[in-house]
Design a binder for these strands. Structure first.
Lengths: 338, 338
DNA sequence: AATCATATCCGAAACGTTTTGGAGGATTTA
DNA sequence: TAAATCCTCCAAAACGTTTCGGATATGATT
């Protein structure tokens, strides 16, 4: 590879001049600049970003740090779609993207800071972290710029982006109440997830607004897993056969719930209405197709990138963003003919 | 951040000694080594990889270059699952992973070489490239180490990994012939894809082996898209109502074919058996669930990474690998009661 | 004619590592 | 005792950039 020195030599100028010419400084004659550009092209010179970063102390690189990047993620595609958004947006804004994945094992070895410093990222987008994750404290107390996905916490250097889970859940449950359902169960994720707390809150709000008393026995946790959701739903429906509708905190768990209901001989949606959350691909292909509240995961990635680069470039702007949801009616919900 | 100089100063030794101590050279006293390690830990020193790479001319970084990384990819998850494989394996082998995505617009601006040199990757795994892509020539004529996914071409520095598409397709079609089908249509992808050529070959082989004459009118191209597949399938079935079974070159196209058949009033699978290729998540959730030939996309990524690092480290090993497929019987295929 | 401003260029230091070639002293060998 | 060997350590160069502080020449101003 041609270096800046080669270009300088061939052009008969100093290294300094080549650097300043190529970087658009004004203290170089336009004619020499053109000549240098020409020669740079001939030698197909392109600056060594390592050397540049080393001296400038800037890498123009952001990291997408995902905790638990696993093949299982392909069922809901959350990570992938966020990744697409981050990737597109980062490219647009002139940043490179490196993928950093950790798991609990790796986290024992390396601290968050080490991970970031080592990979020389200027800032980080963090996805898949739980509320009880030890990294979370580190993130909040670190000076590294960071945007959290679905964890609403802020500090000087950290912001977040999330979906309006409360409103989304409320809409979903009110859809059920409008259909005449009164005994509405909920299959939640787990208590270490902010989104679970919020979706539960939305559920309660919708009940309250419609004069339905909250019954804690109607709420079970499915760990955001299809199989677990299937089991807990089976239990729930057996214990409380009066339930005519279910709100699931994720579409994937709704799949499990559907299987559970079918297993119990229920006719869907006549015996049981089910609404999910996420609008994953599966939800429009399963039978019955799933009414759900859609969240835009791609946009989540885009907004996270925008917020992060704002911080990095010292722009004074909001450090958080909450995206709206959209309710999608499909076949899995219908009037209560109790 | 603490530098190597800080460690050296505090330990009262030279920079050289710190470097050699930390990198496990034998010409440093064990006692000093321990002291240096201790001090490095105290200062939470970790080497600046930029500086190291600059002098060593090695970055220990591989790139996953995907042509057309788009949100639509979440339907079949090909890219994501390959990514997971590459990520896991690269981490295991001590390589960093950067994601490089291009599209036809970007390709106009930057050559393959520039893209790689700029991002300082030592080698590349290339996914999503078509046979008529201009990058392909560049790759083959470049000295940059590269593993192609699903493009069986080799050179000094490039290898490939793919699935045994011919055998997979043959198995799928023979499954249909065993069920008594004789008039078997095929919904292929497009001619710029190697996998299409191979799957077609498998289709022909299966027919030939079972004494069925190949009829080119029975083969249509669905561009690997669900909607396109739906249209061409509709046409195919209308023109040739004698067809009792379809082999689709991808599950996604099979989804389109299923819709087309339902639209035409066909009862699935009794009026029409359909078999797909890929075993995407959807295929087990749709109705009827899809018989298909499974390929292990995660493993594709893993093997690609292994092959690539072999090349990078100068190991003399095979530069290509072909993975087996596995046929999965589900509901969408049944005996021909034509 | 002397001063000042401007336009254009450059030398050298700096970034944080690794590596080369050798120095100095202790120990072993002849 | 002299020579050879081994064990530790280090100074300096190198990697390819950017940037600071000046240098030179030219033209404008007093």
């Amino acid at each position: 590879m041609a270096t800046i020195r080669d270009v300088a030599k061939k052009a008969g100028v100093s290294v300094t001049t080549v650097s300043r010419a190529l970087n658009g400084y004004s203290d170089v004659n336009e004619k020499t600049r053109e000549r240098i550009k020409q020669i740079a092209q001939e030698l197909s010179y392109s600056p060594n970003l390592l050397a540049r970063s080393l001296v400038m102390k800037k890498t123009k690189t952001i990291g997408l740090l995902v905790s638990g990047l696993r093949i299982e993620g392909s069922k809901d595609n959350f990570t992938f779609e966020v990744l697409c958004g981050v990737n597109d947006c980062a490219g647009e804004l002139g940043y490179e993207l490196v993928l950093i994945s950790t798991d609990s094992k790796k986290q024992q070895e390396k601290t968050y800071k080490q991970l970031c410093k080592e990979r020389k990222v200027e800032g980080v987008i963090l996805q898949g972290i739980k509320t009880d994750d030890p990294y979370l404290d580190e993130v909040l107390n670190s000076e590294i710029a960071c945007i959290l996905i679905d964890v609403p916490m802020e500090s000087d250097s950290v912001g977040y982006v999330t979906t309006d889970n409360i409103a989304g859940a409320k809409t979903a449950v009110e859809h059920l109440t409008k259909l005449g359902h009164r005994n509405i169960g909920m299959v939640n994720g787990h208590s270490q997830a902010f989104v679970s707390q919020e979706r539960l809150e939305g559920y309660k709000k919708a009940l309250g607004k419609n004069g339905i008393r909250f019954n804690e026995n109607y709420v079970v946790d499915g760990a955001f897993l299809e199989e677990t959701a299937e089991q807990v739903t089976t239990n729930l429906l057996q214990k409380h056969p009066e339930i005519t509708a279910l709100f699931c905190a994720s579409d994937l768990m709704a799949m499990g719930a559907i299987r559970a209901a079918k297993q119990l001989g229920k006719n869907l949606p006549d015996n049981l209405s089910i609404v999910g959350f996420d609008n994953i691909i599966l939800s429009s292909y399963c039978t019955p197709s799933l009414s759900t509240v859609a969240q835009n995961r791609y946009q989540l990635g885009v907004e996270a990138t925008v917020l992060l680069t704002n911080i990095l470039e010292g722009k004074t702007a909001e450090k958080s963003k909450v995206l709206p949801t959209e309710f999608i009616k499909r076949e899995s919900t219908t009037e209560n003919h109790g």
